[in-house]
């Protein structure tokens, strides 16, 4: 279920973020409880709680006392922005660096990207 490398709570947080980003968890929707998460993934509830806390800190979830955790209204939008930023820093920059090291002309790279994402000629 989990790889044994990165902290489990972060993997759970990432999964929930993914669900929110893809709209599987809509704004205002209730997230499963820590105990449900714990049972489902066979993990300590405190680990699930830690993931939830991280998501609250990041503004993805909010807590309603005695009721549970819910998806923030602007969460999907916020995650999209986050991912865009990450795309340039974590995907594009290393790619550009690699292309330069291999001596691939920028024009070739751009052409290939056009091929991969057709119909966007702006």
């Amino acid at each position: 279920m989990f790889d044994d490398r990165s902290p489990i709570y972060r993997q759970i947080a990432d999964q929930i973020k993914d669900d929110v980003f893809r709209g599987l968890l809509a704004a205002g929707a209730q997230v499963m409880s820590t105990n449900q998460y714990a049972a489902y993934y066979r993990i300590n509830p405190a680990t699930a709680a830690k993931a939830f806390q991280q998501l609250v800190d990041e503004g993805v979830l909010y807590k309603r006392r005695g009721v549970g955790m819910f998806v923030h209204d602007g969460a999907q939008q916020r995650l999209r922005e986050q991912r865009r930023e990450r795309f340039f820093a974590q995907v594009l920059e290393p790619m550009a660096a690699e292309a330069r090291e291999l001596g691939i002309p920028v024009a070739d790279v751009v052409a290939r990207i056009h091929q991969l994402i057709p119909g966007d000629d702006r």
Partner: peptide, 12 residues
């Protein structure tokens, strides 16, 4: 796995 399930359920 059953042990883990029962442990977590009862712990909850």
């Amino acid at each position: 796995q059953l042990f883990a399930d029962e442990l977590l359920a009862d712990y909850g």
